[in-house]
Nucleic acid binder design. Structure first.
Lengths: 316, 316
DNA sequence: TTGTTAATATAACCCAAAGTTATGAAGTTG
DNA sequence: CAACTTCATAACTTTGGGTTATATTAACAA
């Protein structure tokens, strides 16, 4: 015996409100509508739901049992409605984002933490990817957004790129490094120290090679490779090794006073950090919130960084 | 946000079956029907339910949450269906019946006990009433059936009466009573003992008066009145008092060897015990079962009683 | 009884949507 | 790329929920 869940909802309303008229008012429908629905249900189950022709309607035992199920249905339905509203308002949901590992760990993860103190019910599914993989994952719906360094000309046709930070890489070393004292760094200085290399398929690694090449450095000694940001930083801060990192990452770590940056610009000045999304695939509200949050965070961050660059880094 | 519980049920089916086609097969509908329902729901919530254009359908996180609610609805709905089937088959439900107190306590309650060992889920709501009240209660739906002594001519137009036993009242006394020895009882014998009177508004009381009057007894001493059957029996068996009881009640108590009946017929030979129901109000299956059970029980009981009457009672 | 009032039932209508079959489009697989 | 599966679309029918207007009926009071 399969019956219509809506009928059970209505039955529950009628029983709980003690009458058709009240129930109709309660659920915002007309009295005849409910009246007929109850009648129809009564026919379906082929059994009286209300005893006698009394007025206050007297529910049958049988009716009460059905109404109890109706109440469950009503409750589940309201819960579903709440889920929808919650998602629509962006108060909950899940955002799947990916980005280059060092940048995600060094900058974005901190912002996500702050974001989640504001929005407890938004889940973040983060993964690490390089641009090409992000293109694919965005397209097949596995990702909502990517946060990557990219040149404007490299942005695919079907995607939108919102710049959040000028992508500037620097050569990083431990805070007390002897090179960090010098305002002018020579080629020999760079090659005489061991290097920590980012993953070979990362833009950062490419920048490292291209950047050093551009200033004439072709051969340098790689002492460590393949580690995560925290591994790199640990090694960096305990040794005289050098590496290349986004300046924003180094900047964010200033309070810890473990790392510093040399006064050498490196990498592609045309490449910028930004948020990449599919143009036609409108974001979930939750994702939009995150995007907005990150964007505004970066607005102030980049202002501070810019100021800092002008006054401190390149003036040393 | 209010959505259609049926949509959630279908969503749950689709998610659980891993696809529209399978779900359609599972719930016995056409594939396009489900396909469109999902689409409609997607429009309503204004949010994708399945990610990408992948095949096996990949449910969104959001979708899974809604499907979980849908599953609850489905479950409650099935439970409701089960309730209906169960009632239809008469496997559960409630039967409201009433009858004259002494007869209910003396005969019917024992039968109800036996009935309920067979049908655990059928609830019996019993009450005590005299015929006039039963007419009213049947009519206003408070009762399903009445078990009363009545003359065929007294049965109301709108009711059906099924005789289950010839209504015969007897004068009862304790087993060792001196009158019980005598095969012929004289008027003086009856008036010299105290009488226990049934409630004054009961048919039994009327029978007592009328019966004694018919054999010339007009004045008799009433020592006790107003008690339940068990009170009457206790007093009866501890004293030499007399009372009038349905013969079936006395008969049923034979094993206890506390009571016996005098060889005097009393009461209205036109009045019979039976089950009274509203003619047009078809009974619940559970009630029908009880009626059938009682009827068949009485068929054998009345045969035994008849036999006993012939061979023992009136031959003493 | 007989009004009066409040509640439910009925009637007549409209339209949203569930259901159907037939067919097209798209993803998966060999 | 062909075969197969699965989902989406189209066109149409029918059910039934929603409405307003009106009739019944029950409860209450005089």
């Amino acid at each position: 015996m399969k019956l219509d869940p809506r009928h059970l909802e209505i039955l529950a309303a009628v029983v709980d409100n003690g009458g058709v008229t009240e129930a109709a008012r309660a659920i915002g429908k007309s009295q005849p509508s409910l009246s007929r629905t109850i009648n129809l249900l009564e026919c379906r189950v082929d059994r009286p739901l209300f005893a006698g022709k009394k007025r206050p309607l007297l529910p049958t035992e049988f009716c009460l049992q059905l109404a109890a199920e109706g109440r469950k249905i009503l409750k589940a339905n309201q819960a579903a409605g709440e889920i929808v509203s919650s998602h629509k308002a962006g108060r909950s949901g899940a955002v799947r984002l990916a980005g280059t590992p060092f940048f995600m760990d060094g900058v974005i993860s901190g912002m996500i933490a702050a974001f989640q103190t504001l929005h407890h019910d938004i889940r973040i599914d983060q993964s690490y990817c390089y641009p090409l993989d992000i293109f694919a994952d965005l397209r097949n719906g596995v990702l909502d957004l990517g946060i990557i360094p990219i040149r404007a000309s490299e942005v695919p046709e079907d995607m939108t790129f919102d710049q959040i930070l000028r992508g500037r890489n620097v050569i990083a070393c431990r805070a007390g490094h002897s090179l960090a004292q010098k305002s002018v760094v020579r080629l020999n200085d760079l090659t005489s120290y061991p290097w920590i290399a980012p993953p070979v398929d990362s833009p950062l690694y490419h920048d490292l090679r291209a950047g050093l090449e551009s200033i004439g450095v072709r051969h340098f000694k790689i002492s460590f490779t393949g580690g995560s940001l925290s591994a790199v930083i640990n090694i960096l801060s305990e040794s005289d090794a050098l590496t290349v990192l986004p300046y924003s990452v180094v900047f964010r770590m200033r309070p810890q006073n473990r790392l510093t940056a040399l006064s050498i610009r490196i990498g592609d000045p045309e490449r910028h950090l930004g948020i990449l999304t599919l143009t036609n695939n409108c974001l979930e509200p939750a994702a939009k919130r995150l995007v907005n949050y990150i964007a505004t965070e970066f607005k102030s961050l980049s202002a501070i960084i810019h100021h800092h660059e002008q006054n401190e880094l390149w003036r040393k």
